[in-house]
Design a protein around this nucleic acid. Structure first.
Lengths: 233, 233
DNA sequence: ATTTATACATTTGTCCTACAAATAAAATTA
DNA sequence: TAATTTTATTTGTAGGACAAATGTATAAAT
């Protein structure tokens, strides 16, 4: 196997000490099945063990602390913590930094999710939820053009009704991106006024009295303008 | 308004200098609309400007570097970079650290996404994709019990066929969690053998010759055992 | 002997200084 | 002008120092 192929040649990015220590620490936690609450060695011991300066260890630990992976109690030591899945993602969600392609793909993610929640909504909806949802759609004057507040409240409530906190948090984080891409849509494309648009109120009725299928079809028509063109409409 | 309410009393977590500098820097980038490629001030200037030590600045920068937000070229300076959305998330995806509740919710996320991709699959499927997918299902001996490799390959290919790189990457990251939760399912619950399960091959046929609705219904039955119980099945 | 007071050890957070390495820019020389 | 040398710049890494505060061990007092 003396092939000339030595990789893509690009990824020969020499990692810094900090990068390596960060990886080593994460691997160490995983291999030793560290669980929230478990105590970590102190910084100096780590530095000596790894033959690096305390600075390097602290930079690596600082990263893990930011992610919520570990917690440092001054003068007491560090312990493992329960990280939130999206803490890291939240910090890079900046439309000016993210590429346009990423932004568009995130927007598509929304379409996918809102088409997929139907079963969960019907499985977990409560009368209380429906009442709250009705209040949201009732606050709306113009039945066609929803206000931004109402738009956010309505769709947000749907995510909340899935009973999946992670899912809801994901949506809340992505919301600014949705809005950003939506604004671009509004500016660039001349909107094709659909003949009989499905309003939030229609969706509410589907959710209250209809079936998962009816609701999903309604949602699809509600979001129709954003979908890619399909042969079999 | 001289109420006695002074907050929840809990969130009085005094931020460290590093935490604050990290926030200040991110805000600074956002407010000044920093874009990938833009040059950053050097560390010493930042430290002087913010009245903190270079160590603190470096710890904060180290975090942003980890997220891919900035890039440091030794001896040349730092520039803004294009972060990957999920870099931070990837590092905390550790079943031993994440809570069981999070794990279950992530698993539900998968169900939601796979129910929602139908329209995208039909809008973007190519003959090449279908050929590749057919090869995957053809490799399978037992039509009912899919091997783990085939399972991963089939569902992974579906995500890939949406043409949404972000979506596909998300799924790849979450895969170990899916697998982890799935294993728990297998151990705890005695599986209810569905009378006529929908196989991957069935799904392939729906995707090739059917409609988005047919495919989605098939997918729902394929994943039925994992769904929450719905009144209107 | 029990309680109280004191001293000590521990550990993170922050600051400081120093220097290597390597590149780009500037200055010098041919 | 061209080639060479010098210098300045900036990140990466090392190492020392100390404050603060907490828990623990030690000493003192009743």
């Amino acid at each position: 196997m003396t092939s000339k192929k030595i990789g893509t040649l690009a990824p020969m990015e020499t990692l810094s000490m900090t990068d390596r220590v960060e990886n080593i620490l994460r691997d160490y936690f995983t291999e030793n099945k560290f669980k929230p609450g478990d105590a970590l060695p102190n910084e100096l011991d780590m530095a000596k063990e790894l033959n690096v300066s305390r600075n390097v260890v602290r930079e690596a630990l600082s990263r893990l602390r930011m992610l919520g992976m570990i917690e440092a109690r001054p003068r007491k030591g560090m312990i493992m913590a329960q990280p939130d899945l999206f803490t890291g993602m939240e910090k890079v969600l900046n439309p000016f930094i993210l590429g346009q392609n990423s932004l568009n793909e995130i927007f598509e993610l929304r379409l996918i999710m809102e088409m997929g929640i139907s079963e969960f909504l019907f499985a977990r909806k409560t009368d209380q939820d429906l009442t709250a949802l009705e209040a949201i759609v009732a606050n709306q004057k113009d039945p066609v053009l929803a206000s931004k507040e109402e738009e956010v409240a309505f769709h947000g409530k749907l995510y909340e009704m899935t009973g999946n906190e992670t899912f809801k948090r994901f949506q809340t984080l992505l919301m600014p991106i949705f809005d950003h891409v939506f604004t671009e849509y509004s500016n660039k494309k001349t909107f094709v006024e659909t003949s009989n648009p499905v309003t939030h109120y229609d969706l509410f009725l589907f959710l209250k009295n209809g079936t998962p299928d009816e609701f999903r079809k309604g949602m699809q028509r509600h979001l129709a303008v954003y979908f890619p063109v399909t042969e079999t409409s």
